[in-house]
């Protein structure tokens, strides 16, 4: 028996909005520790890693480890049926081939439930090594989304370069070039608006806009976003989900052509 209750169903909806651009379907692994999801997009360029801790839920019970393969478009339809303030309860029997979502309105005067068929999915598990990152940038997530959106107009890829002066995003294309530089700012009153850079050594890496743009769909989840970079290692874009866990995206860099 699996049962998880979340008073704030909109959090789950935001998670779903953040990943459904990249993934059509995914397996949710449920254990007593919580719910995990790890999946690559079809081109194997980016990876979504979601971790929701069991103690972040208002009620969580998972007697037996369970993998639920879901079509995310269908799951999106289910959550479209929920109200903004609804409480959601997910339920599944052991070895079940369906999962049930129950939405309760705030005043408890309306209860709706939806049962969705599960899918059998191929799952490829990736071992992600621990990396000592050369630089870790924390910045307001809205600012990050804005920069990526703006620079996407100029080219297909964005160079993120980080030095001790600050972080620079740049793009170039047929119409010209665009550069955005951010300096470190400490705003002690409003922690969420500050830009902090933890730098071991300078890095510059190139990434495809298309994927960065998809990642920024997670902006509503968190005020701050954390970018971790290191030469020749995928970028990690992390959004903390308050009290519940985190959503991480990994993105393979673009590599300059050598003569082979």
């Amino acid at each position: 028996m699996f049962e998880a209750r979340l008073v704030n169903s909109s959090t789950f909806r935001k998670v779903l909005d953040a990943i459904k651009d990249l993934l059509n379907e995914a397996s949710f692994d449920c254990s007593e520790n919580g719910i995990q999801l790890q999946a690559m997009d079809s081109s194997h360029v980016s990876l979504v890693s979601l971790n929701l801790k069991s103690d972040g839920f208002d009620k969580f019970r998972c007697d037996r480890n369970l993998t639920m393969g879901m079509n995310l478009t269908s799951l999106g339809k289910v959550f479209k049926c929920s109200g903004a303030d609804d409480t959601v309860t997910m339920k599944a029997q052991d070895y079940a081939d369906t999962v049930t979502f129950m939405f309760e309105s705030k005043k408890q005067d309306k209860i709706s439930d939806y049962e969705m068929k599960l899918m059998n999915l191929d799952q490829e598990h990736l071992g992600i090594p621990d990396t000592e990152f050369s630089c870790i940038i924390k910045m307001p997530s809205i600012e990050f989304a804005r920069i990526i959106r703006d620079l996407s107009q100029f080219g297909e890829s964005i160079v993120i370069s980080c030095t001790k002066e600050g972080v620079k995003f740049s793009a170039q294309g047929d119409i010209g070039t665009g550069n955005v530089k951010l300096a470190q700012t400490h705003n002690f009153d409003k922690e969420e608006e500050s830009v902090t850079i933890d730098l071991q050594e300078p890095v510059a890496l190139t990434f495809a806009c298309q994927y960065l743009n998809s990642f920024t769909k997670a902006t509503p989840l968190s005020n701050q976003v954390k970018l971790s970079m290191c030469e020749n290692v995928p970028l990690v874009v992390e959004y903390q989900i308050p009290e519940l866990g985190h959503l991480r995206f990994y993105l393979a860099p673009k590599i300059e052509e050598d003569e082979n």
Partner: peptide, 26 residues
Amino acid sequence: ARGTSTQARLDGFFTVLGTTPAKRKA
């Protein structure tokens, strides 16, 4: 096509630990 840099893949960085085929455990 020659000028653009190539997109790397994640499999090149991370090792695939294994594939669980699409079969229900039960």
